[in-house]
Design a protein around this nucleic acid. Sequence first.
RNA 1: GGUCCGGUAGCUCAGCUGGAUAGAGCAUCAGCCUUCUAAGCUGAGGGUCAUUGGUUCGAAUCCAAUCCGGAUCACCA
Length: 639
Amino acid sequence: MYLANMMHALVIEALSELYGAAFTDKDFQINQTKPEFEGDYTVVLFSLLKKTSQSPQVLGEALGNKLVAENASFFSSFNIIKGFLNLTISNTYWVNLLATNYNDPCFGKQPLNGKRVMVEYSSPNTNKPLHLGHLRNNFLGWSVSEILKANGYEVLKSSIVNDRGIHICKSMIAWQKFGNGETPESSGKKGDHLVGDFYVMFEDELKKQATELLEKENAGEISHYSIEQQEQLIMLQQQRNKFLEEDDSKSKERITKIDAELMETRRGATDIMLEVKSMLLDWEAGKPDVIELWTMMNGWVYDGMNTTYYNIGSDFDKTYYESNTYLLGKDIVQDGLDKNTFYRKPDSSVWIDLTAEGLDEKLVLRKDGTSVYITQDIGLAKQKYDEYKIDQSIYVIGDEQNYHMKVLKLICQRIGLKYADDIHHLSYGMVELPSGKMKSREGTVVDADDIIEEMEKEAREKTEALGKVKDFSAEELQQLYHTIGLGALKFFLLRVDPKKRMVFNPEESIDFHGFTGPFIQYNYARIRSILRKNEIGDDAEKKNIYLALDFLPLEKELITSLEKYPVIIKQACEELNPSAIAVYIFNIAKTFSSFFAEHSISNAETPEKKQLRLHLSMMTANVIKSGMGLLGIQVPERM
RNA sequence: GGUCCGGUAGCUCAGCUGGAUAGAGCAUCAGCCUUCUAAGCUGAGGGUCAUUGGUUCGAAUCCAAUCCGGAUCACCA
């Protein structure tokens, strides 16, 4: 049990004995004592006054005396200021903590709890390379998996690859038209980038053709549209004209929307789009030459992405492909129809009514019997259970899908999926540029491979300028640049609360100073350097030796912070929030850094003091390495 | 329009199950390398915690309303 929990229990017990009053740990707070007061932890007394009918001073006095008298090995003294009871934890406790854990690399982690959880993350498209947003997703997914493991869960990491559909056909068509048989080998391009380039080429061509249609349209020529499209265009134009007359901000907004719809209709009528649609039908029919092209180009993308995954240290226990899962879920719909969970409308489409939960009616099967996005997700959710008997499922998906995920969970609950209550959406905000959203159509995305390379370059320049590792081999240097560069990037993306959207400015490079990965890595390297240079005693009597010593303020601050690590791990798990770890580890590193500047370890006042500081440093290093590990960030022995 | 999320220092963010004088980093300014790694340390300046009202002994934190920003409400995925 940890300090805060233990103290709550002791206070509850004492209050019950003193006043016969029953309290729970939610009835009062125990906080860390503010530095300007004496003590380590503070019981806030105000909320206890009514039930005990005491004044703060009297209650604090009684409680403090009792706690210290009956737990002398735990509390050494107390004082009361206004309604705050400040308790000082005895040195014995801190010494025991240090002596027991200083060399335990698993400090704070829990043994297996028998629960199995699947974390789905990454979920790339096979028509373009990974960008900065994907990196946030990957780092979050990986880190949350590690955090769950540290809390005793068995974790299965999975990914669903979006490898089919109309957008995939776009790059295929573009390759056929403009590719001249180009391959990753012939062009020297990474496979995912090559395919991504064709996707961009497609969009350019589409834009060109749509503009041509617009020009024809302006010249009064509309025969290239189908009757339906013509009607649509006329209707939209009429609406547009109506809003033009209004001339207020609301109408301007509507006009923008209508313009987008108009353009979408034109895009749908282009020759190249017709080719794409026909290719999608061929793909679904399993036409051999289309399947062959699809297999080949997807293979290029997988090769490229695997390189990136390897680079960032991401991996998966199970990869699902939409080409295999897109038909899943239909049997569940049939089953749900039999049980009246779903209902059929006159046009024979199938729906579920979620209005009781404040949502809408949701379509699960089209009138032609084909399934929609949500249907395959339901199917996949069930398949995950059938395959792995998971107790929990976590989806790392952007916050634009909040509604979708809410619907998915609700439907899973309605159809009685076993673990439906334990479906969690780890929703994260977009990574934006100062100019706004990244748009692949406009080429304003920050490419994952580029930014990683940029970070490593930055790490190299800074390392060379400092010149501390001149004896490293080329290989060791490369490894170091990778550790530092990637560490800076991961920390940058993980230190922020996942649900908040964040701004990345490509003009300003990601910092290596202050609240950053490299600062923490640097402190780790400094500790390792000291530990290499000094002999660490393994004296069985060390507890008794320490007991005679007083902790200096910075030493106390360090050990107090280290004690909280297990609680932080638990909290990060409950909140599915790696930033809690990031903030905590930074504070540990910062405290150590002050301590390091203030007090000498090698030349401590006495040999005993030196051993105490070495053990304190060792425990700090272990916690830093462990915590950074939970973020997926490595720490170097030297830098 | 409905629903959801956000608004804290010039910038990027912590703090939010109510507690003592609201914290970091960057940037700015002033100091600190002949002893363990200066990617560091010490200090200074910088705040109407979007606004208003409410609950409370006590509100950045809870409630309500308003303003601003974003997402979403497809027979797209």
